[in-house]
Design a protein around this nucleic acid. Structure first.
Lengths: 206, 206
DNA sequence: AGATATCCTTGACTTAAGTCAAAAAAAGAT
DNA sequence: ATCTTTTTTTGACTTAAGTCAAGGATATCT
């Protein structure tokens, strides 16, 4: 979740998408990037068998394609609105001109991309964790603010969470069940309540 | 491997390090980033048991800390020269001033960070691959230029490559042996010769 | 509501990969 | 060189996680 600064916001073009509408297809020219103001956007790829594989789900405050635009020219994925959504579109040409003319915009984008790098690095470290259980814990903790207790509302299918954790739904299901039996969490549908964050945290650095 | 453009190069301060010399320690203030001109730099962390875990090894043309500087203030790792090395140091203040005054420098850094994001994304995809074998193949292929045959010179201990692939040295060793028995590669010490890239490539997208 | 499809869970089984321990090989030191 | 230390390889074993298949549970549609 990142707030846009005014000078940047002004050059964005508001686009409205209705539920299920496609923002763009894979291989389309990336002549700009997106910023989600409201609603929800699903980003996905196609696997070998033509099945859709979700890459990430975007919420208000999220960017899409901000790195690609500055390097290559084609999107490697599809994007589709899950709900009616308001999205700001930043045209490549406009952005580049803005960066040249407005140092604060330049700094904004440098900072934006730098932050993204750090997030990706964290993710890499996380995937380096040995067990699915550890990666699951890490994921859950990253979604709660260090409190004793907290509730996580999954914004995606469990099978998609599994993918993100580098595993499959069956294994995720078993891990959740196991942790529930241990009294560490309570799972009800797509809501997970962590009964004791510190205990979970201690499992990550033993 | 990224070339510096002249306008950027000029604001770098040349620093010379001799073999084994420390560039900085973890937790030190990140008041600038580095660019390797010659030599070799080892980047590592300490694990719980106080053992050094290599994160990456840098060669000429590589940057270090370029994302951290623009966001947070402390290095999360150590850096040490493996050989005598020439390194350019870019001071945070100087860089920010440059970005403000020189649009081409601003674009350079935006592009630099954007590229880094894409590299990290690739790495994440790669770690998402199921088997160690697949990740190993992906790693080897990324180090050869699409030729029929090619030779890879490992710049690190095999145990460190294992870490990067998200596994352990024993498993890496067994995979290398297996692939050698299948006639796909030839391993001699830290030199791997791929006898047929296309065949390997086909294993990644079956 | 009922019907259809999708998703989640569970069980039985297989396999990949981790652990521990020891030998072999390679790299450093004297 | 020879001795010492560190890495790498190998073997025997254990365990985590994947596969396949079936039953439940939710969601979605008309």
């Amino acid at each position: 979740m990142i707030d846009l600064e005014e000078s940047v916001k002004n050059i964005g073009i508001l686009k409205k998408y209705t539920k299920d509408e496609i923002l763009f297809n894979a291989q389309e020219n990336a002549n700009g990037f997106y910023y989600v103001q409201s609603g929800e956007i699903r980003v996905y790829k196609m696997d070998e068998n033509g099945r859709e594989v979700e890459v990430v789900r975007l919420e208000p405050g999220d960017f899409l394609g901000e790195a690609i635009v500055f390097v290559s020219s084609r999107f490697p994925f599809f994007a589709q609105a899950v709900k009616d959504s308001n999205v700001l579109f930043f045209e490549k040409k406009t952005i580049l001109r803005k960066i040249e003319s407005d140092p604060s915009a330049a700094k904004f984008f440098v900072n934006l991309l730098a932050k993204k790098c750090l997030v990706l690095n964290k993710r890499i470290e996380s995937l380096g964790l040995q067990t699915v259980r550890q990666r699951l814990i890490q994921h859950m903790l990253s979604h709660c603010r260090g409190n004793e207790q907290c509730v996580i509302e999954l914004k995606m299918k469990k099978s998609e969470l599994a993918k993100i954790l580098g595993t499959i739904s069956e294994t995720l299901s078993r891990n959740l069940k196991q942790m529930q039996e241990e009294g560490l969490i309570e799972v009800k549908g797509s809501r997970i309540r962590i009964t004791n964050c510190p205990v979970l945290r201690s499992e990550l650095s033993p």
